[in-house]
Amino acid sequence: MLQTKGLYYSYDGRNQLQFPDIDCKKGEHWLLLGQSGSGKTTLLHLLGGLLTPKGGVVNIDGTNIANMVGSALDRFRGQRVGIIFQKAHFVKSLTVEENLLLAQQLAGAPASKTRIREMLERLNVGHKHRSKPDRLSAGEQQRVAIARALVNQPAIILADEPTSALDDVNCNEVIHLLEEQAAAVAATLLVVTHDSRLKAAFRNQIHL
């Protein structure tokens, strides 16, 4: 489902970041551990098609996105990849529900408020659907971010330090929800983190 081969990247043309090959099967949950500066975020951006690699292959569901450019890549990303960031960001002028509607619209998916309500309910933030995102707590924001990443039923879900800003209680809850929701849409989940609290939760681990 998610494979890389000989992936490398360079910011300045001299120092190359080499990444180990990855092979995640459909529905598997992986943890990618690494210290700060080890290139975790770079790898996640390469996997999510936010950055084009200098060399190598990124294969998502049979498509090598390393060769894709422009709006085709944008569309592919919107439809097949869900990304959750360390700090949840939203379009500030929109409500929670509208942010999810925007996610559907930008991915070219039909707008479905039913699906959005369902996602928000499942993540226990259904009652917040009319709130502006900055009115929510950090934990609630991260749950809405998960709902947004999952609303288009992506093939893979990438999470960049999703728990590092959260306390233990929220950390456990968010990881639990992530795993549960990824399983619900049968998506491959890859969590990139330096948060050692998560080690116990994942059987499949890669170290950078």
């Binding site: 936010l50 422009g70 919107g78 960001h89 939203f90 379009v91 930008l106």
Partner: peptide, 14 residues
């Protein structure tokens, strides 16, 4: 950040 986020969600440059 908002604009970058929209790109992540599938919005093209145009």
């Amino acid at each position: 950040y908002e604009l970058a986020l929209m790109r992540v969600m599938g919005a093209s440059r145009s």
